[in-house]
Design a protein around this nucleic acid. Structure first.
Length: 257
DNA sequence: ATGGCAGGCTATGCCTGA
């Protein structure tokens, strides 16, 4: 059995105590982190290792930054960029763990529809599709997980009417996500019965979490062959209830491998 | 229509996030 998780921590410096507690309580085998917001030189490797995890990381100052934690072996065949996109933003981290290929993503937010950042997001998603298409040729067991910054359907948004015309839900973004899935990936969360209004991100403002005014934008996607072994896929709300939380909750999937 | 909250920075307000 392997337990794999994704969590946008919104600053690993601030959230390190939450992460270490969560690792102890949850005991995942592999964890994908996003928005660590630090250079590689500042990565808290000693604390992570003391908790029993190896780490790969691709960081930058102030923004973005991704990491992969694993119990036991460190990942191999590490990738930190799309082959055809020159990009200083650290949003990609791929590695292989005993034949399991893992691709950790921090998809661009896109700011607002029609902005330069929106175009960057859509272009980035095209490169993601190309890369996943190639990866699926080489790996039957592929997991693509992270903060996708896209709410796939209206049921993934607390108030679809209020979000209409906004970032995260625009038709081109949703189409890009569907095209990605159609390459042969399964949204493991939707393989199982879930409570209505299940979300993974809530705005810090306006008591959004207390009112459950959220969106579901963090996913664990599994290749078709692998998805058949998925036994569970959940969102862990506990860390979002803590003092000074990340605005994202971790998502966790278990595979019988 | 607007701002609201949080993090990082060389800052004492601004940018970004979603």
């Amino acid at each position: 059995m392997i337990k794999i998780a994704s969590w946008n921590v919104n600053s690993l410096r601030v959230r390190l105590p939450h992460l270490l507690d969560w690792l102890t309580n949850t005991a995942p085998d592999i964890v994908a982190l996003q928005e660590i917001k630090m250079t590689d030189a500042k990565f808290p490797l000693a604390e992570i290792q003391a908790a029993g995890y190896q780490a790969l990381f691709s960081g930058q100052k102030t923004y973005n930054g991704v990491a992969l934690l694993s119990r036991g072996r460190v990942g191999s065949d590490v990738v930190t960029d799309w082959p055809m996109l020159e990009d200083p933003q650290r949003r990609v981290l791929g590695a292989t763990y005993d034949g399991l290929r893992v691709l950790n993503l921090y998809v661009p937010n896109g700011s607002s529809i029609g902005s330069d950042k929106y175009q960057y997001k859509l272009n980035w998603l095209t490169h993601l599709q190309d890369y996943v298409r190639e990866s699926l040729k080489h790996y039957s067991h592929l997991i693509v997980l992270g903060d996708f910054n896209i709410a796939p359907e209206d049921r993934d948004v607390y108030d679809p009417a209020a979000w209409d015309g906004k970032i995260l839900v625009s038709p081109p973004e949703r189409a890009a996500l569907q095209q990605l899935l159609s390459l042969g990936l399964s949204d493991t969360f939707r393989q199982f019965e879930q409570a209505p209004e299940s979300f993974s991100w809530w705005d810090y403002r306006g008591s959004s979490f207390r009112r459950n005014h959220g969106v579901r934008i963090d996913f664990i996607l599994a290749s078709t062959a692998l998805s058949r072994y998925c036994a569970d896929s959940t969102i862990d709300l506990a860390p979002r209830r803590l003092e000074r939380p990340s605005d994202h909750a971790p998502v966790v999937a278990t595979f019988h491998l």
